[in-house]
Amino acid sequence: MNLYYYASPSTFYPLAGKLIPLFSALAFILAVVGLYISFFVAPTDFQQGEGYRIIFIHVPAAWMSMFIYVVMAFWSAIGLAWNTRLSFIMARALAPTGAMFTFVALWTGAFWGKPMWGAWWVWDARLTSELILFFLYVGVMALQAAIDDPRRSDRAGALLNLVGVINVPIIYFSVKWWNTLHQGSSVSLTRAPSMAHIMLWAMLVMALAAWMYAIAVALVRARSLVLERERQTDWVRALLEGKP
């Protein structure tokens, strides 16, 4: 019963309102700490020079892009199974953030690639999978945007999301395998040369910051979706009239 209490939009709305500043503050502090470590504490890499520091953005963004897709699929599955509106709203609220992190990962990957391999884009297995993940995000958002009826839009998006999440490992595997067959680009982003502890820490802190940011932004988006969807209900009317 407790679960249903929090799943009700009218309880969620004020609760989210209280949580947003908390997560925003955490995101800000962690980002400042993380950036400080990445730029001033972490040593210069003897092979890659200063350019390597982009991984402190790139790697957390790549982690988040995959993680958020799975979280979206989780909410989608819950929504489809128990027909809870808030789950669909959460899945929908996460999509743009996930797409943003995917884009950042691709962008910074290109920036990193230029000094490392001398090319903006290499058909590396990870970068390619990331690109396809980006397409999957775009597909879900395009589908949701194309359907006017919110109920259908939610469900259709959720189904596509689930199909995508089943496919992601297969796509990743196939791309990796394709990559090893075509020996052209044997350089890999993954083989970070014996990373120093401090670098790992910076990356973890940055990932946490990204995580907090994602939660905060998703909550903001979910709140406005709740208002939009529930604008016919009494509690939203009362809320809007309460604030002149």
Binding site: I132, F135, V138, G139, A142, L160, N167, I171, S174, W178
Partner: peptide, 17 residues
């Protein structure tokens, strides 16, 4: 057009194999 956008990424493994 939308079908293309949704489904092409899912076709990737079939294309590769």
């Amino acid at each position: 057009v939308l079908v293309t956008l949704l489904i092409l990424p899912l076709y990737v493994p079939a294309l590769i194999f």
